[in-house]
Structure formats: structure tokens, C-alpha cells
């Protein structure tokens, strides 16, 4: 067996929705403790790729897949492997903030409770830790029992990040996490992403090239379901190898 050096590796992945082919033969790995940005125009399969990594596409009845996705060396689509355990290990933040209709505290405790944490002190500690890591603690520590949907958009999104962190996943998937937020909140979340990469493997989907350049260490360019280029962000920014990549980052396609 090959030695496993990365949390997530993809080998020859192709996916379909019905008869429509979305991803075409993608092979790559995501470097640990860094931010990998997946860029590309709308409809190129960025979100599909992200959702294949935590098997969220399984919800779509017409979804089909070929190829292998490895999480710490284990095939996540292997029959009998637990999708619940997988999603606990691979957290996700969505495009629009989606706090549950409960208090701030209950939002954070939801995940740990699902996975069997019962002790109140431990839960309180998780709430505080997660909110601190998501840079939200100082703003909400006195309002933990307020309904989460009352928070501002940016706070809601940081709450969703804290919620994802609450079950301590080594990998964090982010699907355009700031695209629905105002610039100020977006900036805060970008800072947070850079801060979080010390402890997590972050895979960030974005159609915003500037954002990808600001926060990511590595970048992938996806075009019409094909992985066109995957390199360190610096190299892609300075000297893209493929002309389609260059066209995208200079704003000529997308």
C-alpha cells in the first residue's frame, strides 16, 4: 500500500447527475494544514467536487460516480463505510449562512450531542472553544441563549463555521462562504480562514479570483468539469500554465 501523506486524495473521479457528466476524470490531493482554493466559472463543477468529498451528493437520487476518494487512506464510498462518521470528520460551511432555528448555544452543541457528548461541562467547553476559534466568542458570549437567526449575516456565517468546528473535523469544506456577505463581514471571514489553516485542511470553493489569491496556498482551476490546473497559488497567479487559466484569472472567461 502506498504511504498516505494527505487527508484527502482523489483518483480518477468522474461524476454524473443523470446522464449529464459533471466532473471529468479528476486526480489530485489536498495538502494538509493549508488552504486550497477551487476556482472556476459558475457551473464548472466546483460545488459538486466539494460535495463529493463529504458524500452530500448522495442526497441527489440521480448522482453517479466513478473513481476513488480517499480520506486518510480509506475509500469513503466503500460499501459499509459510515457516512455519518465521515461527515463528522469532514466539516462543511455553506454559501448562505444556515443557522438552525435554535439558540446560539444549541447550534454549537447540536453536532457534539449527535456524536454522543453528554457531559454539560464538556459541552460548555466545546461551545466556548468553537466560538473562540471562529472569532465569534467576544461578540456573542452574553447572548448564547438568543436565537441564532437574530445574529447578523456575518455573525451567522461565523457561527456556522463554529458549528462545523464543534465536532473537531480535520478537514473543512467551504462552499463560497462569503459570497452572500457584505465586504466587511467577508473580510473577517477571510482572515479567519487564514487563521484556521494552522489546524485544519481547508478546501475553499470560490468564483472570486482575488479572494482565492488572498487566502489560498494552493489553487485548482476547474473548467467544464475538467481539472485544468492545480498548483501553488503564487505560481498560478504569476504564471498560469494553461491559457484557459490565464483567461479566467484575467477575467476573460467566467
Amino acid at each position: 500500500m502506498v504511504e498516505i501523506s494527505h487527508n484527502i486524495e482523489i483518483h480518477n473521479l468522474s461524476t454524473w447527475f443523470g446522464s449529464k457528466k459533471i466532473l471529468r476524470d479528476i486526480t489530485c490531493y489536498f495538502r494538509d494544514n493549508s488552504v486550497t482554493a477551487i476556482m472556476g466559472p459558475s457551473g464548472c463543477g466546483k460545488s459538486t467536487l466539494l460535495r463529493t468529498l463529504n458524500r452530500l451528493n448522495d442526497l441527489v437520487p440521480s448522482f453517479r460516480r466513478e473513481g476513488v476518494v480517499l480520506f486518510r487512506g480509506q475509500d469513503i464510498y466503500k460499501p459499509g463505510s459510515s457516512v455519518y462518521e465521515l461527515r463528522k470528520r469532514i466539516g462543511m460551511v455553506f454559501q448562505k449562512p444556515n443557522p438552525f432555528p435554535m439558540s446560539v448555544r444549541d447550534n454549537i452543541m447540536y453536532g457534539p450531542k449527535l456524536h454522543g457528548v453528554k457531559d454539560d461541562n464538556e459541552l460548555d467547553k466545546i461551545v466556548e472553544d468553537s466560538l473562540k476559534r471562529a472569532a465569534l466568542w467576544d461578540e456573542v458570549k452574553d447572548e448564547l441563549d438568543q436565537p441564532a437567526p437574530n445574529l447578523s449575516g456575518g455573525q451567522q456565517q461565523r457561527l456556522c463555521i463554529a458549528r462545523a468546528l464543534s465536532v473537531d473535523p480535520p478537514v473543512l469544506l467551504m462552499d463560497e462562504p462569503v459570497s452572500s456577505l457584505d465586504p466587511l463581514s467577508a473580510g473577517k471571514i477571510e482572515e479567519l480562514i487564514v487563521e484556521l489553516k494552522k489546524d485544519y485542511t481547508i478546501i475553499l470553493v470560490t468564483h472570486n479570483v482575488q479572494q482565492a489569491f488572498r487566502v489560498s496556498d494552493e489553487a485548482a482551476f476547474l473548467y467544464l468539469g475538467e481539472l485544468v490546473e492545480f498548483n501553488s497559488t503564487k505560481k498560478i497567479a504569476v504564471a498560469p500554465q494553461d491559457e484557459r487559466t490565464e483567461a479566467f484569472i484575467t477575467g476573460r472567461i467566467g
Binding site: L56, R87, M92, F94, N98, F100, Y110, L114, R163, A164
Partner: peptide, 20 residues
Amino acid sequence: SLREGSLALGATKWSTTWNV
């Protein structure tokens, strides 16, 4: 997206339906 948020945390369908 609310259901997905719960499922993405590793919740079962039942837990998602009932709690969220």
C-alpha cells in the same frame, strides 16, 4: 440548506428531520 447543514455534521436523516 438547513437540512444539509445538519447532515453535513454527521446527523442521521431522522435526527435532521426531527431536530432541524
